[in-house]
Amino acid sequence: MLLSLIKKEFQLEFRQKSSLAGVLVYVIGTIFVSAMCFKAKVDKPTWNALFWVITLFTSVNICGKSFLKESGGQALFNYLHYSPLHFIFAKVLFNMILMLVLSLVTFFFYAFFIRNEVENMSLFLLVLILASTGLGGVLSLMSAISAKASAGFGIMSILSFPVLMPLILVIIRLSKMAVDGIEWAGVSGQLLLILGALNLLTLALSFLLFPYLWRD
């Protein structure tokens, strides 16, 4: 049951090529605009902040759509056939993988159009992975809420930005270390631990709270 749900998510995404291609163009467009605006004159803190702002906006855009398809008859069908835990698990997993791929793509084009400032690449990749899973986890639940509220797309960003702040701040601080080229021995283990714990916390909350959004 769970596997079929996950498979369905991927099939739907790949069948609708317009949305996936749209995201790619969105990412490239944003990075290109930033590159034009900054004229490649960015120092390290700005480089770091700009990258995460772009990733944040992309992720809200992408994950915000993940529950919009499930409305009306489709929602009833899901409700009758699947358990809410399986359903949210499939959504979260899909969003996490999608975010991971997208943030890697974003990083590639960002490095290509602007510059690659990262000096401790392994740390940066670890932060990228944990950030994608964290963003995917939080935004899945936020997307479910805003889809139920059916108040248009604006509500998604209003709800997500404030609750994403703790995550983003920890990510930015860790990523700054990677950009500055701090060796592994000097990296704050406490921050990494908090980032991991935030991931688990948001996952646990999503699984606990989603069943209440489920029944209509």
């Binding site: 639940l141 809420i145 509220a149 916390l201 709270l209 209440y212 959004l213």
Partner: peptide, 13 residues
């Protein structure tokens, strides 16, 4: 229901 879910999540964050 929706606002209760958001409230719980928001309080923790």
């Amino acid at each position: 229901r929706i606002s209760a879910v958001y409230n719980v999540f928001a309080f923790v964050m």
